[in-house]
Design a protein around this nucleic acid. Structure first.
Lengths: 138, 138
DNA sequence: CTACACCTTAGAGTCGACTCCAAGTCAAGG
DNA sequence: CCTTGACTTGGAGTCGACTCTAAGGTGTAG
């Protein structure tokens, strides 16, 4: 199964522009047909999805390129490869905690505003909040 | 309690450069002393921390500015305020799921490489992976 | 055969979020 | 008094990751 650039764009949600940009950057380099048309293999598609996953969790394109180079090179530099993964794992774990904490914070804040809405509908909104300024941004 | 820019920088971890940049953008505008030196109040500090929390979970500075403006304006436009929060909540929840999913993926990949390391230490690394290409980037 | 998807090069523009610089002013400790 | 370090301003530069344009040529499905 091989895909043309437009097909892969639809499958992955990455625009054609960006796919060509990734190719220029050496991040995702497809084969070519006789007619010089980009031909993305099934593996290319999986790699594209992998890029999306990693990029979506904050990995830089450079790191992804490095990772790809290591995978493609002969010899046992899989150690650096694992290091990249572990480093990213740490990053993801930290972010995960940050997001969880932040979610709680937002929920509390929304609740605060909802309580105002359902409760004393005076013009006192900002003074009410002023009274608890110290915990306002906890 | 009032802080000078250098103090706040140390307290929050935001550089002085960036604090001045935030001021230029209207995102965090301190008072001034007689001598025209920036004077950040306790509330400014809390707001700075809030900025860090929200920015760290992907909220744009523009949205934070809008939020600040709404908080400061008179009248009951707290509805838009809550909308901003709810929108961000959705964003955070989505990201949270993405990070969790990604964490599993990375762990599996690392395990894969570790298994190779502890096991058959041949030069067969890439062909081994080639055999499971289809699930390589799952 | 026609229409549409694809190809090329080379470079310019955008965006968000900083990051830094020059050139000067001001305040407090020794 | 003098030095040192923090402060001031406006504006320019950087970075990552796109995003688009021009202006033309080629490939292919129905």
């Amino acid at each position: 199964m091989a895909y043309r650039i437009g097909e892969l764009a639809k499958l992955t949600g990455i625009t054609e522009h960006t796919l060509r940009f990734y190719e220029k950057e050496g991040l995702l380099v497809p084969g070519r047909t006789n007619g010089n048309i980009r031909s993305y293999s099934e593996e290319d598609r999986l790699w594209a999805d992998f890029i999306l996953h990693m990029k979506g969790t904050g990995m830089a394109l450079q790191d992804l390129k490095r990772y790809k180079e290591l995978r493609e090179s002969e010899g046992s530099n899989y150690q650096e490869l694992v290091e990249i993964l572990i480093q990213h794992q740490h990053h993801v774990e930290a972010k995960l905690a940050e997001y969880q904490h932040n979610l709680e914070l937002i929920k509390k804040k929304i609740e605060m505003y909802q309580q105002y809405k359902d409760g004393n509908k005076t013009k006192d909104l900002y003074s009410t909040f002023a009274e608890r300024k110290i915990t306002e941004y906890d």
